[in-house]
Design a protein around this nucleic acid. Structure first.
Lengths: 195, 195
DNA sequence: ATAGGCATGTAAGCAGTTACATGATTTA
DNA sequence: TAAATCATGTAACTGCTTACATGCCTAT
């Protein structure tokens, strides 16, 4: 069980509804966890049944009511036990890297396009994260904030998201450029041979 | 279905047995895919049944015989179709980042220790990858190899692994240092108050 | 002797994905 | 009036993890 702890950790930042969590997990809780909406609703139900979170109804006008959740004492205890247990190796499954690995025997064009797409996404994510980080540290510069700020956890995990997004963007762009140039030269050679 | 394509891509580099693949997937196929040994044996069985790979017995002395596999025509066609289809977002699930996110309300000591452990692992992985990349490019410098080399796919995906390992190591170390210093100062304050 | 690496699996259970379902309100 | 956003689920399926199982060979 693993999503459970990611949800608990996310709920430390404030009270959120299932729907709000889907937004947070959609960009990946600072990009280190992904979960589908249906998983979150299911997990929240289980967590509430187990007494690790409590929900309360929030009446809204102009839009449907929602139930927001917060972590209970026993939820916090669960998180503490989890944090003390040894970390398991991270799970990474990257479709696009598999395609790049195999690209020599394949048509590079669609792979290049996908690399460009992902570079764009990663760039957007990077901007989002940088805005979030700037919001968290407020007026302070990073060093001061990390030394004296009260809640640095979300900032530190956000930095991981930033780093990953930046590297992803740069790798995608440089890889796309490499493949583009190679297929450009390949076309030239064929052109010369057949002319 | 996704592991299937990662296996096919890995088998493009040469003929491997299930056991050899576990070693490759253990360090994460250049760090972009992880799979447990049992998954690989099961997947190879399925791939062979579907005619996407063929196996042949290799008789060895001094150790048990093994079955090595290679990709068939139809396996290559499957890979080509897969590469042309839109990439799905990468799956990332990082236990340790969840703990860091929640660290403000938790005992930081075990988290710091886990960060140091992971930094060590990432450093080792980085060295491994750099050795692999150096082997792939041989005498050529990186730029020349990427321009003129025959098989650049594994090199490019390996670069992604390098980048990720380097960022992981650096983030873990700087995060551990930040948390260490903060808990050091916290202890000092408590010392002063109680003396 | 025994620990570790090589080699290959089965079986049960849990987690994650995909498809389907509903309904209100706001914006274009 | 159609599309997008808010809001919450169920059901079926597939894929992944954990635990268990076997056996040979090499090095210490």
């Amino acid at each position: 069980m693993a999503l459970r702890h990611a949800v608990l950790a996310a709920l430390l930042d404030g009270e959120y509804s299932g729907y709000q969590l889907t937004k947070i997990f959609d960009i990946g809780v600072s990009n280190f966890w992904y979960a589908a909406p249906q998983q979150l609703y299911a997990e929240l139900t289980k967590l509430e049944a187990g007494g690790l979170v409590t929900g309360r109804e929030v009446v809204q006008r102009g839009r449907p009511n929602k139930r927001v959740f917060k972590v209970t004492e026993s939820g916090l205890a669960e998180l503490a036990a989890y944090a003390a247990a040894p970390a398991r190796p991270l799970v990474l499954r990257d479709d696009l890297a598999v395609k790049v690995h195999a690209v020599d025997l394949l048509d590079p064009a669609p792979v290049i396009e996908q690399l460009r797409d992902r570079a764009r996404e990663a760039g957007a994510k990077l901007e989002t994260f940088e805005r979030i980080l700037a919001g968290l540290r407020g007026d302070l510069d990073e060093e001061t904030f990390l030394r004296e700020g009260e809640h640095v956890g979300p900032y530190l995990s956000g930095q991981a998201g930033c780093r990953l997004a930046r590297e992803t963007r740069d790798w995608c762009l440089s890889t796309a450029r490499t493949l583009e140039e190679r297929s450009g030269r390949a076309r030239e050679r064929i052109g010369k041979e057949t002319s």
